[in-house]
């Protein structure tokens, strides 16, 4: 990352840690994962957990609607001006990995319009197990899977499961009903990920997002250090 220089003019490029005026930009964390695994619910829970202590904003990448953005608006997890929707031309993984320009623009506009920001959460549209965020777009990424998607997903691996900075296994409360073996999922994830952390969570329980929120706080402390 280019920590020591910033570009002339308004449109800084990619992963520069500074904004055009020289101030440090917000930490950007991506949330990806398959359709229905609970990305939007996790984003909503994170917003509720962090909004009192941090200045934050959300960028959504929907597949063919603004539904995720509208869910967040309806739930009123953040004021509307802090939520921005990127249209992805049917390919959300392209917009978060191969051609990140629209997302970078959305992040910059949020920083310009409601900044200064501490944290921007970039949510991918539901996609497949290979969809990961470009390092030019986010500083860290969370991959969200759920127990109902099959307890063999951690074993199968794939870039999201094996390389994300944090793997979240969501909806643990459903495990008994869908016959998923949580211990096996945790063991398989450990095998795929080595030292990279895994969180098992149920957003139905009180403060269910606490572990993920703590992880985000730690990343933010490292970013601003």
């Amino acid at each position: 990352m280019h920590l020591d220089h910033h570009h002339d003019g308004p449109a800084a490029v990619s992963a520069d840690a500074h904004r055009p005026d020289g101030t440090r930009r917000a930490l950007r964390i991506g949330l990806g994962g398959p359709v229905g695994s609970g990305k939007t619910a996790t984003v909503a829970a994170l917003c509720r957990a962090l909004r009192e202590e941090l200045s934050l904003a959300v960028v959504t990448n929907d597949i063919y609607t603004r539904e995720d953005a509208e869910f967040l608006l309806r739930e009123a997890v953040l004021p509307p001006e802090r939520i921005s929707a990127v249209e992805t031309g049917a390919c959300p993984h392209t917009a978060i990995r191969d051609d990140i320009s629209a997302n970078l623009e959305a992040v910059e506009d949020l920083e310009d319009e409601v900044g200064p920001l501490d944290l921007v959460l970039v949510e991918s549209g539901g996609d497949n197990l290979t969809a990961t965020f470009s390092k030019g777009l986010v500083d860290a990424q969370i991959f969200v899977i759920d127990v109902a998607g099959g307890d063999d997903i951690p074993r199968k691996g794939g870039p999201g499961v094996s390389t994300a900075d944090l793997l979240v296994v969501n909806k643990t409360d459903l495990a008994p009903y869908v016959g998923s073996d949580l211990a096996r999922m945790a063991a398989d994830a450990k095998a795929q990920r080595g030292e990279l952390p895994v969180v098992l969570q149920s957003l139905r329980s009180e403060d269910g997002v606490r572990d993920v929120a703590d992880w985000v706080r730690a990343r933010l402390a490292a970013w601003t250090a």
Partner: peptide, 23 residues
């Protein structure tokens, strides 16, 4: 969006000037 990609790919003062003129 093209401006961002072009400035990263082929840095050039004319691109910088246009970016300043049309943020």
């Amino acid at each position: 969006q093209l401006m961002r990609a072009a400035r990263a790919t082929w840095p050039h003062p004319e691109l910088d000037a246009l970016a300043r003129r049309f943020p």
